[in-house]
Protein backbone atom coordinates (compact mmCIF):
# COMPACT_ATOMS: atom_id res chain seq x y z
CA UNK A 1 0.00 0.00 0.00
CA UNK A 2 1.32 3.48 -0.89
CA UNK A 3 1.70 5.57 2.25
CA UNK A 4 -0.28 8.81 2.40
CA UNK A 5 2.90 10.53 3.50
CA UNK A 6 6.46 9.29 3.59
CA UNK A 7 9.85 10.73 4.44
CA UNK A 8 13.05 8.98 3.40
CA UNK A 9 16.33 9.86 5.10
CA UNK A 10 15.10 13.36 5.89
CA UNK A 11 17.83 15.59 7.28
CA UNK A 12 18.05 19.19 8.34
CA UNK A 13 20.75 21.02 10.24
CA UNK A 14 20.96 24.59 11.42
CA UNK A 15 24.69 25.16 11.03
CA UNK A 16 26.38 22.27 12.81
CA UNK A 17 23.27 21.43 14.81
CA UNK A 18 21.25 18.57 13.33
CA UNK A 19 17.54 19.05 14.07
CA UNK A 20 16.27 16.28 11.82
CA UNK A 21 18.58 13.31 11.60
CA UNK A 22 17.79 10.74 8.95
CA UNK A 23 14.07 10.50 9.63
CA UNK A 24 12.29 7.63 7.89
CA UNK A 25 8.60 7.94 8.50
CA UNK A 26 5.43 6.49 7.00
CA UNK A 27 1.88 7.63 7.48
CA UNK A 28 -0.67 5.11 6.24
CA UNK A 29 -3.85 6.22 4.43
CA UNK A 30 -6.56 6.99 6.98
CA UNK A 31 -4.04 6.64 9.82
CA UNK A 32 -4.49 7.94 13.35
CA UNK A 33 -0.88 8.52 14.15
CA UNK A 34 0.77 10.54 16.91
CA UNK A 35 4.21 12.10 16.98
CA UNK A 36 5.54 12.62 20.47
CA UNK A 37 8.84 13.56 22.00
CA UNK A 38 10.33 15.82 24.65
CA UNK A 39 10.72 19.56 24.10
CA UNK A 40 13.34 20.29 21.47
CA UNK A 41 13.02 16.83 19.91
CA UNK A 42 12.46 18.44 16.51
CA UNK A 43 8.74 17.81 16.13
CA UNK A 44 7.92 21.26 14.81
CA UNK A 45 10.98 21.20 12.53
CA UNK A 46 9.72 17.91 11.13
CA UNK A 47 6.31 19.47 10.41
CA UNK A 48 7.93 22.51 8.81
CA UNK A 49 9.98 20.25 6.56
CA UNK A 50 6.92 18.32 5.48
CA UNK A 51 4.88 21.44 4.77
CA UNK A 52 7.72 23.20 2.98
CA UNK A 53 8.30 26.07 5.38
CA UNK A 54 11.84 24.70 5.72
CA UNK A 55 13.97 23.10 3.05
CA UNK A 56 15.66 19.81 3.99
CA UNK A 57 19.44 19.44 3.77
CA UNK A 58 18.96 15.92 2.41
CA UNK A 59 16.29 13.29 1.95
CA UNK A 60 12.94 12.94 0.25
CA UNK A 61 9.32 13.66 1.07
CA UNK A 62 6.51 11.87 -0.73
CA UNK A 63 2.81 12.62 -0.63
CA UNK A 64 0.62 9.81 -1.90
CA UNK A 65 3.67 8.32 -3.60
CA UNK A 66 4.62 11.51 -5.48
CA UNK A 67 7.73 13.36 -4.55
CA UNK A 68 7.11 16.84 -3.13
CA UNK A 69 10.53 17.60 -1.65
CA UNK A 70 11.12 20.70 -3.80
CA UNK A 71 7.50 21.78 -4.13
CA UNK A 72 6.37 25.17 -2.74
CA UNK A 73 4.14 25.31 0.32
CA UNK A 74 1.11 26.17 -1.79
CA UNK A 75 1.93 23.38 -4.22
CA UNK A 76 1.87 20.84 -1.40
CA UNK A 77 -1.43 22.15 -0.10
CA UNK A 78 -2.92 21.79 -3.58
CA UNK A 79 -1.87 18.13 -3.51
CA UNK A 80 -3.75 17.48 -0.31
CA UNK A 81 -1.51 18.42 2.59
CA UNK A 82 -3.34 20.37 5.31
CA UNK A 83 -2.11 21.59 8.66
CA UNK A 84 -3.04 23.44 11.82
CA UNK A 85 -0.68 25.50 13.94
CA UNK A 86 0.40 25.11 17.54
CA UNK A 87 -0.25 28.81 18.07
CA UNK A 88 -3.43 30.13 16.47
CA UNK A 89 -2.65 31.38 13.00
CA UNK A 90 -5.91 32.94 11.93
CA UNK A 91 -7.30 36.02 10.20
CA UNK A 92 -8.22 37.62 13.49
CA UNK A 93 -10.05 40.63 12.14
CA UNK A 94 -12.21 38.61 9.74
CA UNK A 95 -15.34 36.68 10.55
CA UNK A 96 -15.22 32.96 11.29
CA UNK A 97 -17.13 32.29 8.09
CA UNK A 98 -14.69 34.36 6.08
CA UNK A 99 -11.71 32.54 7.59
CA UNK A 100 -13.02 29.24 6.33
CA UNK A 101 -14.32 30.61 3.02
CA UNK A 102 -10.79 31.82 2.28
CA UNK A 103 -9.51 28.24 2.45
CA UNK A 104 -12.45 26.83 0.49
CA UNK A 105 -11.96 29.44 -2.27
CA UNK A 106 -8.28 28.60 -2.62
CA UNK A 107 -9.05 24.91 -2.85
CA UNK A 108 -11.50 25.56 -5.68
CA UNK A 109 -8.88 27.69 -7.43
CA UNK A 110 -11.13 30.73 -7.07
CA UNK A 111 -8.86 32.66 -4.72
CA UNK A 112 -7.30 34.68 -7.52
CA UNK A 113 -10.54 35.70 -9.26
CA UNK A 114 -10.57 39.46 -9.81
CA UNK A 115 -13.55 40.17 -11.95
CA UNK A 116 -16.38 38.88 -9.82
CA UNK A 117 -17.60 39.62 -6.31
CA UNK A 118 -16.62 37.08 -3.68
CA UNK A 119 -20.29 36.89 -2.71
CA UNK A 120 -21.23 35.67 -6.17
CA UNK A 121 -19.69 32.31 -5.31
CA UNK A 122 -22.51 31.34 -3.00
CA UNK A 123 -21.54 27.68 -3.29
CA UNK A 124 -18.19 28.36 -1.64
CA UNK A 125 -19.71 30.33 1.22
CA UNK A 126 -22.27 27.59 1.76
CA UNK A 127 -19.63 24.90 1.81
CA UNK A 128 -17.70 26.87 4.44
CA UNK A 129 -20.84 27.41 6.51
CA UNK A 130 -21.68 23.71 6.32
CA UNK A 131 -18.31 22.88 7.73
CA UNK A 132 -18.81 25.36 10.58
CA UNK A 133 -22.16 23.82 11.42
CA UNK A 134 -20.56 20.42 11.68
CA UNK A 135 -18.04 21.83 14.13
CA UNK A 136 -20.90 23.57 15.95
CA UNK A 137 -19.55 26.97 15.06
CA UNK A 138 -22.57 27.94 12.97
CA UNK A 139 -23.83 30.46 15.51
CA UNK A 140 -20.46 32.19 15.61
CA UNK A 141 -20.10 32.42 11.83
CA UNK A 142 -20.34 36.20 11.64
CA UNK A 143 -18.21 37.01 14.67
CA UNK A 144 -14.69 38.26 14.16
CA UNK A 145 -12.33 35.46 15.16
CA UNK A 146 -10.62 37.63 17.77
CA UNK A 147 -13.90 37.80 19.73
CA UNK A 148 -14.10 34.01 20.14
CA UNK A 149 -12.86 32.23 23.27
CA UNK A 150 -9.53 30.49 22.73
CA UNK A 151 -11.00 27.00 22.59
CA UNK A 152 -13.29 27.96 19.73
CA UNK A 153 -10.42 29.64 17.93
CA UNK A 154 -8.64 26.28 18.04
CA UNK A 155 -11.68 24.80 16.31
CA UNK A 156 -11.46 27.46 13.60
CA UNK A 157 -7.86 26.31 13.03
CA UNK A 158 -9.19 22.84 12.32
CA UNK A 159 -12.11 24.15 10.26
CA UNK A 160 -9.75 26.05 7.94
CA UNK A 161 -7.63 22.94 7.44
CA UNK A 162 -10.73 20.84 6.71
CA UNK A 163 -11.84 23.46 4.19
CA UNK A 164 -8.87 22.30 2.12
CA UNK A 165 -10.22 18.71 2.08
CA UNK A 166 -6.75 17.33 2.78
CA UNK A 167 -5.76 13.71 2.31
CA UNK A 168 -3.12 14.24 5.00
CA UNK A 169 -3.83 16.46 8.00
CA UNK A 170 -1.10 17.57 10.39
CA UNK A 171 -2.43 18.70 13.75
CA UNK A 172 0.21 20.60 15.70
CA UNK A 173 -0.82 20.41 19.37
CA UNK A 174 -4.50 21.01 18.65
CA UNK A 175 -5.41 21.38 22.32
CA UNK A 176 -2.47 23.61 23.29
CA UNK A 177 -3.48 26.50 25.48
CA UNK A 178 -7.08 25.41 25.80
CA UNK A 179 -8.56 25.43 29.30
CA UNK A 180 -9.21 21.85 30.41
CA UNK A 181 -12.96 22.43 30.52
CA UNK A 182 -12.95 22.98 26.77
CA UNK A 183 -10.49 20.29 25.64
CA UNK A 184 -13.30 17.74 25.43
CA UNK A 185 -14.93 19.67 22.57
CA UNK A 186 -11.70 19.58 20.61
CA UNK A 187 -11.09 15.91 21.35
CA UNK A 188 -14.56 15.18 20.11
CA UNK A 189 -13.92 16.94 16.85
CA UNK A 190 -10.61 15.14 16.36
CA UNK A 191 -12.16 11.77 17.07
CA UNK A 192 -14.87 12.44 14.52
CA UNK A 193 -12.58 13.47 11.70
CA UNK A 194 -13.48 11.76 8.42
CA UNK A 195 -11.94 8.31 8.23
CA UNK A 196 -10.35 8.82 4.82
CA UNK A 197 -8.04 11.57 6.07
CA UNK A 198 -4.65 10.39 7.31
CA UNK A 199 -4.09 12.31 10.54
CA UNK A 200 -0.75 12.99 12.18
CA UNK A 201 -1.06 14.65 15.55
CA UNK A 202 1.82 16.28 17.41
CA UNK A 203 0.95 16.40 21.06
CA UNK A 204 2.27 16.76 24.58
CA UNK A 205 -0.89 15.70 26.32
CA UNK A 206 -0.50 11.92 26.83
CA UNK A 207 -4.17 11.37 27.63
CA UNK A 208 -5.07 12.81 24.27
CA UNK A 209 -2.40 10.77 22.47
CA UNK A 210 -3.39 7.45 23.99
CA UNK A 211 -7.05 8.09 23.43
CA UNK A 212 -6.66 9.09 19.81
CA UNK A 213 -3.67 7.32 18.28
CA UNK A 214 -3.50 3.82 16.85
CA UNK A 215 0.20 4.27 16.24
CA UNK A 216 2.83 6.39 17.93
CA UNK A 217 6.26 7.59 16.78
CA UNK A 218 8.67 8.88 19.38
CA UNK A 219 11.13 11.51 18.23
CA UNK A 220 14.22 12.25 20.29
CA UNK A 221 16.99 14.65 19.29
CA UNK A 222 15.81 14.84 15.72
CA UNK A 223 15.72 11.07 15.19
CA UNK A 224 13.07 8.38 15.48
CA UNK A 225 13.65 6.51 18.73
CA UNK A 226 10.88 3.97 18.42
CA UNK A 227 7.55 3.44 16.71
CA UNK A 228 4.64 1.21 17.72
CA UNK A 229 1.14 0.81 19.06
CA UNK A 230 0.16 2.79 22.18
CA UNK A 231 0.58 -0.37 24.27
CA UNK A 232 4.07 -1.02 22.90
CA UNK A 233 5.11 2.57 23.46
CA UNK A 234 3.74 2.61 27.00
CA UNK A 235 5.72 -0.56 27.77
CA UNK A 236 8.96 0.56 26.11
CA UNK A 237 11.72 1.13 28.62
CA UNK A 238 13.65 3.65 26.50
CA UNK A 239 10.52 5.74 26.03
CA UNK A 240 9.82 5.66 29.76
CA UNK A 241 13.33 6.87 30.35
CA UNK A 242 13.42 9.81 27.95
CA UNK A 243 9.85 10.82 27.87
CA UNK A 244 7.29 9.13 30.04
CA UNK A 245 9.64 8.85 32.98
CA UNK A 246 8.72 12.22 34.28
CA UNK A 247 5.08 11.16 34.27
CA UNK A 248 5.37 7.65 35.72
CA UNK A 249 7.63 8.70 38.50
CA UNK A 250 6.12 12.12 39.03
Amino acid sequence: MIPALETIGLKKSFGALPVANDINFRLAPGARHALIGPNGAGKTTFINLITGRLEPSAGEIKLGGAEITRLSQSGRVKRGLGRTFQINTLFKGLSVLENVTMAVSERHGAGGDMFRFAGSRRDLVEEAYDLLERLRLGNDALLPVKELPYGKQRLVEIAIALGLRPSVLLLDEPAAGVPSAETEIILNVIENLPGDIAVLIIEHDMDLVFRFAKKITVLVQGAVLVEGTPAEIAADARVREVYLGEHSHG
Binding site: F85, R107, G111, G112, M114, I160, L164
Partner: peptide, 26 residues
Protein backbone atom coordinates in the same frame (compact mmCIF):
# COMPACT_ATOMS: atom_id res chain seq x y z
CA UNK B 1 -14.95 45.17 -7.70
CA UNK B 2 -11.37 44.24 -6.98
CA UNK B 3 -11.50 44.66 -3.19
CA UNK B 4 -14.73 42.67 -2.97
CA UNK B 5 -13.44 39.91 -5.26
CA UNK B 6 -11.86 36.69 -3.97
CA UNK B 7 -8.54 38.17 -5.08
CA UNK B 8 -9.13 41.27 -2.96
CA UNK B 9 -10.20 39.21 0.03
CA UNK B 10 -7.05 37.15 -0.28
CA UNK B 11 -5.01 40.37 -0.09
CA UNK B 12 -6.68 41.10 3.22
CA UNK B 13 -5.81 37.56 4.25
CA UNK B 14 -2.17 38.18 3.39
CA UNK B 15 -2.22 41.36 5.47
CA UNK B 16 -3.91 39.63 8.38
CA UNK B 17 -1.81 36.47 8.43
CA UNK B 18 0.62 35.59 5.69
CA UNK B 19 1.67 32.31 7.35
CA UNK B 20 -1.88 31.04 7.17
CA UNK B 21 -2.22 32.12 3.56
CA UNK B 22 0.79 29.98 2.65
CA UNK B 23 -0.77 27.12 4.59
CA UNK B 24 -4.05 27.24 2.66
CA UNK B 25 -2.22 27.05 -0.65
CA UNK B 26 -2.22 30.69 -1.72
Amino acid sequence: LLVHSPFGRSLTGIRENVTRMHAIGT
